[in-house]
């Protein structure tokens, strides 16, 4: 059954978007299909791998299990909105410095979670990093590099 459609208004990466979409649709699908923001990835559709992580009001959410209606009237930040023009966010820089990726598919989700973590805990310990990142999977196995990148990013953001 088609649901009644009233527009949903979301600030996406700082731009207000009015979206005529079903309220039950996943935020991931709306980002990827309606807005063409394909940096946020599908990995499992069940919130078990973290590839779809975006920030909703600064908090990490699994966009694949978040109905788009949850974002109504709120601000969403995706990987595309992290850098300012050509200037990368310190977390992105740190991932590059540590070469904390192989195939790159999980990288956007990892990056967004790491940004939120450092906002919340400017100096996370290694254990805190493992805990905060534990919902993210990297089949290439670059975990140790991601931990290193997050330490590096925390250093950069202190400065």
């Amino acid at each position: 059954m088609a649901e009644s459609i009233e527009p949903i208004i979301i600030s996406v990466n700082g731009t207000e978007r009015r979206l005529a979409v079903e309220r039950s649709r996943s935020l991931l699908s709306v980002l990827r299909i309606e807005l063409g923001l394909t940096g946020t990835k599908y990995g499992c559709g069940a919130g078990q791998c973290g590839a779809c992580t975006a920030l909703l009001e600064g908090r990490p959410v699994r966009a694949c299990v978040t109905p788009v209606s949850h974002a109504d009237g709120r601000a969403v930040l995706t990987i595309e909105g992290l850098a300012e023009e050509e200037t990368l966010h310190p977390v992105q820089e740190a991932f590059l410095e540590a070469q904390a990726f192989q195939c790159g598919y999980c990288t956007p989700g990892m990056t967004m979670e790491a940004v939120a973590l450092i906002w919340q805990k400017p100096r996370p310990s290694e254990l805190e990093i493992r805990e905060a990142m534990s919902g993210h999977l990297c089949r290439c196995g670059t975990y140790a590099r991601i931990i290193k990148a997050i330490h590096l990013a925390a250093d950069k953001m202190q400065r």
Binding site: I33, Q92, G104, P108
Partner: peptide, 27 residues
């Protein structure tokens, strides 16, 4: 030397198959 693909990974710009959006795409 750093990966030549690195920047596209950390910015989300890298295009995987499901990220390509030709005109008239259906699912």
């Amino acid at each position: 030397v750093p990966s030549v693909d690195g920047r596209s990974y950390v910015t989300g710009a890298a295009k995987y198959t499901a990220d390509i959006r030709p005109q008239g795409l259906a699912f």
